[in-house]
């Protein structure tokens, strides 16, 4: 069983959903993002999503755009993101790690080599924002061959007819983009989610995570109960960026402040 499947199975026996916090690789530098990554499981992260910076993040709002820009300014490369995971795996064999990013840096690295190296480093799944089902054959054979889960995004615009098509070949979990919009801008209402998630359940047995617009402990708790997991990204990056000095360096205690926030979210998910 994959690490992701094992984690969701374990949480099911506990009768709760998962918290999936997000961090952007090397935001604002290698040491800070590594400290965040290492600290997240103890703070209550069930799975962790790592953003791979890209110059043109079309689906991201200003908060994650800025995080990616800081990562790139710090010199992060695709290989460094994999190194982060490899180092994390030295102390943590259980917490699933999912990489989220855009296609071009992966194409540039080489899709086959990327999937092989990611699997070796201890990555469990991939979310590639600009790789819809229609183009998935660019990566899917290699992610499958290396045992990486290929996590699909489902949007409010994905209709019943399209749903099976998008879910075809997906594994790990399904990522429900809860708003029509970019990251960190607005939140879906509980009513919207209560209508959307059962519709999705009918089409898949995979666990469902809700992302985009999940900011507060209340929202995370509610999302993890309506679905199976809550992804929190922009709210955590907001906290990190509020704790940077004028040169963009992390102020003392910045990592702990973000981890405190993760603890608050985790408590709500454990409700």
């Amino acid at each position: 069983m994959s690490r992701i499947a094992a984690k969701f199975a374990e949480l099911k026996t506990q009768g709760r959903g998962a918290l999936i916090p997000f961090l952007e690789a090397w935001d604002p530098d290698q040491a800070t993002s590594m400290a965040l990554l290492r600290g997240m499981p103890a703070a209550g992260a069930d799975l962790i999503e790592i953003g791979m910076p890209f110059t043109d993040p079309m689906a991201d709002g200003p908060i994650i755009q800025a995080a990616g820009k800081r990562g790139l300014a710090a010199g992060v490369k695709v290989a460094h993101v994999l190194t982060m995971v490899r180092e994390f795996r030295q102390d943590d064999a259980k917490t699933p790690v999912v990489l989220m990013g855009y296609l071009n840096p992966i194409l540039s690295y080489g899709p086959e080599r990327f999937c092989a190296d990611a699997a070796k480093a201890g990555v469990d799944g991939l979310i590639i924002v600009d790789l819809p089902t229609e183009e998935a054959d660019l990566l899917l054979p290699f992610s499958n061959a290396n045992g990486l889960d290929f996590i699909r995004l489902i949007a409010p615009t994905t209709d019943e007819e399209r749903l099976p098509h998008v879910l075809n070949g997906s594994s790990g979990f399904v990522y429900y983009v809860s708003i029509t919009g970019i990251t960190g801008t607005r939140s879906a209402s509980a009513e919207h989610l209560q209508a959307a998630i059962p519709r999705l359940r009918k089409a898949t047995d995979l666990p469902i995570a809700i992302g985009f617009g999940v900011r507060t402990p209340d929202q995370a708790g509610s999302a993890s109960r309506i679905a199976d997991a809550a992804v929190v990204a922009s709210a955590l990056i907001d906290t990190l960026s509020a704790n940077l000095d004028e040169h963009g360096k992390a102020l003392p205690g910045a990592v702990e402040k973000v981890l405190d926030q993760v603890r608050g979210l985790a408590a709500a998910v454990r409700g």
Binding site: L131, P132, E134, T157
Partner: peptide
């Protein structure tokens, strides 16, 4: 598939795909 040889295609987020 919107391809000219190996170029072109539809590399957008799922939200935009139906549009």
């Amino acid at each position: 598939r919107g391809r000219f040889g190996e170029f072109g295609g539809r590399f957008v987020a799922e939200t935009l795909m139906p549009l």
